[in-house]
């Protein structure tokens, strides 16, 4: 192991090291000009960042944000109605499921053919595979934004931050 403490310096600076490591780093800095110089550089960077002035939003920022939010809020009940309708249709009876699965296959087939990333025998037949396929598609193809947008919004934090 290198005697230098370069990779511990940020943690040392942030007070994120245990007592023993602190002692080791401090002792090393007393004797090693190279590490000391790097440490001072890191301190300078941090001070520079901390000293940056707070940027002010452009005038009307909150107002524009308000209008976008209001538009979103207006769209939400309709979206919720549509989704609950969809859920109901999904929830019951095999023939409805067959209907939806049929629609999925119709939608998914050309995509599978176009991307060529899956053979025709691996046509996704269930909704899980369909979603998985879209995720893979979006990883491969940045232009498929639309396909992922619903997925992204469903992938928001469930765990609140303290």
């Amino acid at each position: 192991m290198s005697p230098h403490v370069s990779d511990r310096l940020s943690e040392y600076m942030d007070g994120a090291l245990g007592v023993q490591d602190v002692e080791r780093v401090r002792a090393h800095l007393d004797t090693c000009p190279a590490c000391l110089q790097e440490y001072r550089g890191l301190q300078d960077v941090q001070q520079l960042l901390r000293g940056l002035p707070a940027p002010h939003p452009r005038e009307g920022f909150m107002e524009r944000t308000h209008w976008r939010l209001a538009r979103e809020a207006a769209a939400q009940p309709a979206r919720a109605r549509f989704l609950s309708g969809l859920r109901e249709a999904f929830a019951v009876r095999p023939f409805r499921v067959a209907l939806v699965a049929g629609a999925l296959v119709v939608v998914a087939l050309p995509i599978v053919w176009m991307t060529g990333s899956m053979g025709p025998r691996e046509v996704p037949l269930d909704s899980d595979a369909y979603v998985r396929h879209y995720v893979m598609l979006s990883v491969d193809r940045p232009l498929a934004d639309e396909a992922t947008s619903t997925f992204v919004s469903s992938d928001l934090p469930e765990q609140p931050i303290r």
Partner: peptide, 20 residues
Amino acid sequence: AEDLAQEAIIEAFRAFDRYQ
């Protein structure tokens, strides 16, 4: 910055039920 802030705010509103 305005775009990013607004997009995040809209996304947050969509998920607001999950905010404690």
